[in-house]
Structure formats: structure tokens, C-alpha cells
């Protein structure tokens, strides 16, 4: 029973991993930008939720009204800069590492290095849950999962059905051919960067609902999130969702069967397995550039 509960909770928490990974995976897959600064955007999203909820007494989910547009602009500007400077692939990893450090230091200067958490009286989502038979679906995890399904599912449908989405897929397949057929990579990049900014806002909000925030928190996400991105297949949104849930179940089970402290090792193992089993999942396009 405890095991089943852990698996279900883990699956729901996996929604948060998927949310964090989705934006990263999309810009990596389509624009060839490995944007470590995305973790910084998630951090800023979490802090914005904390700040707006605390200062204005707004419902934590409603803080998205502030953080989503702000991070849309930030994400778009970031992609615009990468595109303008012609930074992609390995250089983007390096450059965004520098930017991540900058963002974390700015967050430290504003919010200090102490742990910050939304006060319980302002946050009605932190506790409680939805009973399902003898199982309980914890509210924050349920929220994470619902947002992940809506956002990632919506993104997937948009990619399949809309004109812009087809453009992005074409661009991911072969950027030169796509450009030759009149796809404007600059606008596409701005839009995709902005949308991944929005996903960062949502991921940050969900994280802030049930966790304390400190500027160095993003480092703890690295392992899990990259495992999700790679397992799911770079640029593959539905894959990200599946991988996120899978890893959530894995860490949930590991924490009850062994102990929570073994979790990082299992995740590290997951990364290595991801690399061993799915190296071809990286960069689906091959051949001439």
C-alpha cells in the first residue's frame, strides 16, 4: 500500500520534472541551444511566485499572471541573443552556464541565500489531497501533473496541428532546407524561447507551492531534468512527459524501498542508462548540416 502510494505520488511529482524539462528539450531539439540558463528562469519563476504571493497576497497559482508574461519576455530575449550572436550547440552550453551563474548571483543579491517559502496561510495548495479509494493524491503533486499534461499536451498538439508548429518541426529536421522554404528562424526562435519561458514560470510556480527556495536550488535539478530530457528524446515533448513520470515513479519507489538518501544515485544511474540506451535519441537529424 505504501509502495503503491509512493508510486502514484511519484508519478504525479514527475509532472514537475516534465515541466522543467519541456522548455529545455524544445529549445535544444529545435534551435540546437542547450540553455542552462533555463534553470535560472525556473528559479526566477519560483521567486516571483513567492514574492507576488507574499507581497500582494495573491493566490499562488494566480501569480502566473505576473510571472508568465515576464518570463515569456525573458525567454524570448535570451533566444534572440543566442540567435543574434550565432551561439548554438556546445558554445550555447558554455555561454548559458555563465548566464546561469549571473542569474543565481542576482537572485542571491535580491532574495538572500536563505530559504524562502510561501507562508502557509497564503498557500492553500501546500497540504491536503484528493482521496482516491485508499490512496491520496497530494494537492501540489496533482497540480504539477495537471499543468504538465495541459501544457505539454497542448504544446504537442500545437506542434502537430498548427502552421507554426509544423514550421518548428521542419526547422528541427533540417534548418537549411526549412530556411530555404521561407521559415523565419528568428521569429520562430523568439516564439519558442518565449514559450519555454512560460513553461519555466509554471515549473517555478509549481516548485514554490511545496518547496523552500534558495538560489542554489537549480543545481539540484540538473541530474533529474537532464535525465528526463535525454530519456524522453531531445525535442520530443510527449517523451518528456513520459520520462518525467517514469523518473518520478522511480524516485518515489526508491525512497520508500531503500531510503530517500539513495535517490541521487538512482537518478545518476538513470542518466547513465539514458545515455547507454538512447544515445540516438539525441539530435534526431543526422548527416549534412
Amino acid at each position: 500500500m505504501i509502495t503503491l502510494q509512493a508510486a502514484v505520488t511519484g508519478a504525479l511529482v514527475g509532472g514537475l520534472y516534465a515541466l522543467m524539462a519541456a522548455g529545455l528539450s524544445a529549445t535544444w531539439g529545435v534551435l540546437r541551444v542547450i540553455n542552462l540558463a533555463h534553470f535560472g528562469l525556473i528559479l526566477i519563476g519560483a521567486y516571483l511566485t513567492y514574492q507576488v504571493a507574499t507581497s500582494w497576497g495573491l493566490d499562488p497559482i494566480a501569480t502566473l499572471l505576473v510571472s508568465a508574461p515576464a518570463l515569456f519576455v525573458a525567454g524570448a530575449l535570451l533566444q534572440g541573443a543566442y540567435d543574434r550572436l550565432g551561439v548554438a550547440g556546445f558554445n550555447s552550453l558554455l555561454m548559458s552556464f555563465g548566464l546561469l551563474i549571473v542569474i543565481i548571483q542576482i537572485a542571491t543579491n535580491i532574495w538572500t541565500a536563505d530559504f524562502q517559502r510561501i507562508a502557509p496561510e497564503l498557500n492553500r495548495y501546500a497540504t491536503g489531497g484528493l482521496p482516491l479509494g485508499r490512496l491520496i493524491l497530494p494537492t501540489p503533486a496533482l497540480i504539477a501533473f495537471s499543468f504538465a499534461v495541459v501544457l505539454i499536451g497542448g504544446g504537442y498538439i500545437a506542434l502537430q496541428r498548427t502552421f507554426v508548429g509544423r514550421g518548428m518541426r521542419a526547422f528541427a529536421e533540417d534548418r537549411n532546407v526549412a530556411a530555404a522554404f521561407g521559415i523565419d528562424h528568428r521569429r520562430l526562435g523568439l516564439l519558442l524561447g518565449g514559450l519555454s519561458g512560460v513553461s519555466a514560470a509554471v515549473a517555478g510556480m509549481v516548485f514554490a507551492l511545496s518547496n523552500s527556495i534558495t538560489p542554489t536550488t537549480p543545481y539540484e535539478w540538473f541530474g533529474t531534468v537532464f535525465a528526463v530530457v535525454i530519456l524522453g528524446g531531445v525535442g520530443n515533448l510527449l517523451g518528456t512527459l513520459v520520462a518525467g513520470v517514469g523518473i518520478g515513479v522511480l524516485s518515489g519507489l526508491v525512497s520508500v524501498i531503500w531510503s530517500p538518501s539513495t535517490e541521487p544515485f538512482m537518478l545518476f544511474l538513470a542518466v547513465i542508462l539514458a545515455l547507454l540506451l538512447r544515445p540516438q535519441g539525441l539530435f534526431r537529424t543526422a548527416g549534412a548540416q
Binding site: 550572436l85 551561439v87 558554445n91 558554455l94 555561454m95 548559458s96 552556464f97 555563465g98 548566464l99 546561469l100 551563474i101 549571473v102 543565481i104 548571483q105 542576482i106 542571491t108 543579491n109
Partner: peptide
Amino acid sequence: SAWSAIIFGGLLALLVV
């Protein structure tokens, strides 16, 4: 001191370009 990480992170980004 509080600015050094910002300066160095920015410097790395700049150097790449």
C-alpha cells in the same frame, strides 16, 4: 564581492562570443 559572480559569469558569456 557580491558582484564578482555576476562579472565572471558575464565574462564567460562574453568570451564565448
